[in-house]
Design a binder for these strands. Structure first.
Lengths: 103, 103
DNA sequence: TGACTATTTCGCAATTTTGAGAAATACATT
DNA sequence: AATGTATTTCTCAAAATTGCGAAATAGTCA
């Protein structure tokens, strides 16, 4: 089910990212899509908990899911989010993207 | 008191932005610094409530305050945050900054 | 000093979020 | 059809957040 990000209030996008488990998920998805089983392992919480975190991210339009075979794969739909996180965490890597910032 | 942003966990930066009143505050500060009285008016909540929202933003390293005369002035310390918000809200204005994103 | 002004801190009730386990779904394989 | 695997939904108690009014601070001005 492809959820469109349009019309999600800005603060809900931030709220969705305001939890360490969900930041971990977004970072895990930065390079490639992953099934829930992989994310459960990376996050280190129970299945039901991770599943709920994923639905928060999905409702905020940050990720989307695809069912393929037995597994559900999640991917980022807002690449700028993972870039922004990377910038917050190591500003030096983004000299021209966020000039005068994150420093 | 100048709070340094270093060492604030990433998810706390997002959590601080995950509330409509605090988004309003950041947007009000995007163009220029403002005293608390102006922010109270823009946000439309009580003084004590706005003050607490400001302390959340301050602890996240997003704003800093300066006492001058009778008033306390707040300003953005992380300009990329307001740029990121602007991008989320009107992606079309940031074609080269967040390529392939926010669309 | 005393009164004022601008802002923050405190205490409280209402609401929301979190994590977990059990139960429910959905689909694939035998 | 029966079984098994992957994931989601539901329910619940604990913890965190929100907004408010009252009280506390801090600095200014008469």
């Amino acid at each position: 089910m492809k959820s469109t990000r349009t019309q999600v209030p800005t603060h809900d996008v931030f709220k969705a990212l305001g939890h360490p488990a969900r930041i971990t998920i977004v970072q895990a998805l930065a390079s490639e899509e992953r099934c829930v089983c992989e994310l459960v392992e990376k996050v280190g919480l129970g299945w039901s908990t991770v599943s709920r975190h994923l639905s928060v991210l999905r409702e905020a339009g940050i990720v989307a899911d695809d069912k393929r075979g037995l597994q559900v794969y999640y991917r980022l739909t807002l690449p700028c989010v993972s870039r922004f996180i990377a910038c917050l965490e190591s500003p030096a890597d983004f000299p021209q993207l966020f000039t005068g910032c994150c420093s």
